[in-house]
Design a protein around this nucleic acid. Structure first.
Lengths: 196, 196
DNA sequence: GGTTCAAGCGGACCGGGGTCCGGTTCTATT
DNA sequence: AATAGAACCGGACCCCGGTCCGCTTGAACC
């Protein structure tokens, strides 16, 4: 009979070989993305590159989207870190409006840079929810400080929607706009909301 | 020697059997979507249901996304018709702000109703461009009538982004908001832009 | 009606995502 | 150290989107 019940908050630790494989897979994936682009990262090719079986890849990451999400997660963590405790105006210390505008700019750049990766990660749906909820919370907070009235939950979502990877990519690659102009338009709208 | 050169504007008409197969495939696809949902529409299953070979399906519609786009296109045509010449406030005859708000509401409903179909059609990227450009033009036009100052191209895109199927679906299905509330938030933002 | 040939047709085939299960390896317990 | 059993491993297998190519058919001109 087991002496200690498994604690709820303590998932049974990952075995050492499993951890090794996870690292190996993530490294291989990053290498392949860097060298040949996102589309070249086939689950079979990745397994071979990392020297493991295909089943292992799926065991670790559930799906291709899950793998891509794990890659995106690194950037996401760094970005959230920068927002929560980095230097102003993105981080704390600057006036709320400046922080909001800096957030938009920074997010546009991040989403444009990793648009393909995010799309492959099924961004709009699964993982997007987590990232979205962080950004939405941040934006609601800033809107609150700016004493904006109204349904902040919906307003935050509406302000965030134009930052989506597909939207930015569409404007940059098919409409020939540059980030400065896009951001200026978005900032214009934000200011009207705040001053309205 | 051919008596008449093929006129440039006149693509060599579709053969009758080809036209028959196209209709047959579209009908079968609509039936399957209705009965079993979008995901059940496999290219193999569709071919069998329509009584044609798989190659024919791809000849007609290029890809699964192309097929879905063809299905979406019907609704899209009707909607554009309603905007261009339907009854107010969506169609012409109402004040610009009323038309703009009605457009948002109507589009939200359309996008929510056909969210799965639109996603399967690769909405955000290919076909989305055509639909987007119609909506964007319409919104720019209304913003112009409302004498809104600024970069109308970018502002229009920013106002349209929150209407995207994925965004609406996310709010309705994962955040438990209803369309009335979402539309109210969007309308709030639009009014601030117009009055700002 | 006969001839011609581009257009259409269809199913065998391929590559990639995802599943499964028998064999192997790690770790907790004694 | 030995044992047991859970976690892990890997590759054969399945399904689906997409391609290819040899055969068929429709239509336009004689």
């Amino acid at each position: 009979m087991p002496v200690s019940l498994p604690l709820l908050g303590e998932p049974p630790r990952e075995r050492s070989d499993a951890a090794r494989n996870r690292e190996s897979l993530l490294c291989a994936a990053r290498r392949m993305v860097e060298a040949e682009g996102v589309e070249a990262v086939t689950m079979d090719a990745l397994a071979e590159e990392a020297g493991v079986g295909k089943g292992t890849v799926f065991r670790r990451f559930e799906s291709r989207a899950g793998l891509m999400a794990a890659l995106v997660n690194d950037f996401e963590i760094d970005w959230q870190e920068a927002v929560l405790s980095g230097p102003p105006p993105l981080g704390p210390g600057a006036p709320p409006l400046d922080r909001l505008l800096a957030m938009g700019r920074s997010r546009m750049e991040l989403n444009l840079t990793h648009a393909q990766l995010m799309e492959a990660a099924g961004w709009e749906l699964t993982q997007g929810a987590a990232a979205h909820s962080f950004i939405a919370m941040h934006v609601r907070h800033l809107l609150g400080e700016l004493e904006v009235r109204g349904d902040l939950q919906v307003i935050a979502t509406v302000l965030i929607a134009p930052l989506a990877p597909a939207v930015i990519q569409q404007q940059v690659e098919h409409e020939g706009l540059d980030l400065d102009r896009i951001h200026a338009g978005w900032a214009d709208l934000v200011e009207r909301v705040v001053n309205g």
